[in-house]
Computed example of a mutant assay.
Amino acid sequence: MRVDQPLLQRSAPVSRQRKAEPQQPLVIIVDDDASVREALSELILSMGFEPVCFASTRELLDADVLNSPGCLILDVRMPGASGLDLQHHLATNGNPKPIIFLTGHGDIPMTVQAMKAGAVDFLTKPVRDQTLLDAVIAGIAVDAKRRG
């Protein structure tokens, strides 16, 4: 798969690959900024992981992906429910999906809240590619360990 192909042209082949290999980890990206979603998706694809993107927490909750192996990359501030709200919702409903927060508007109390609630990492935009990829690998490892 070429890295310079538009994201929309890749969605069908990636989905077919997922059906052929149902245990491949998903990296679920939730961010209200389309350019951020596309850039993160490109980075995740370049490392051989399968990205699935959503513009809001509601879109994610309406989809059937949360029980798949993998992790979440989650923006904090979004219209509707925030990333922190989603983290609380998932934990309360028995889905402790590993979460990597990625935000341009973080502060220390927000970071502490997210980490105490079990976030794998709390990163600020802009982030180095390798830093984010290390966090994704850690998130996938946490999920794999939970699934036993």
Rank of each mutant, 00 (worst) to 15 (best):
A91N: 13
R16H: 14
R77E: 15
A135M: 01
V120F: 01
S15H: 14
E21H: 14
P96G: 08
A81T: 04
Q24E: 13
L133D: 01
R77T: 14
F122Y: 15
I99S: 04
N95L: 15
V52P: 00
V142S: 03
G104Q: 02
R10V: 01
P22I: 11
L74D: 08
T111L: 02
C71G: 02
D121Y: 03
I73H: 02
V65F: 14
D75R: 01
V36M: 11
P51V: 11
K116G: 02
L84K: 03
L8G: 03
E21V: 10
D143S: 02
G70H: 09
P126D: 15
V3P: 03
G139S: 04
V65H: 14
K116D: 13
R77G: 05
V112I: 15
H105S: 09
G48F: 12
R128G: 10
I100V: 15
A91K: 02
D4F: 13
E50N: 12
V136E: 08
R2H: 12
V65M: 06
V76I: 10
G104W: 08
V65R: 07
F122T: 08
L72S: 04
K116W: 05
L72T: 05
T57A: 13
A55F: 10
Q23T: 14
N93S: 12
Q9S: 14
L60E: 02
P22G: 05
R146E: 04
L84D: 03
T131L: 09
E50I: 10
M1E: 07
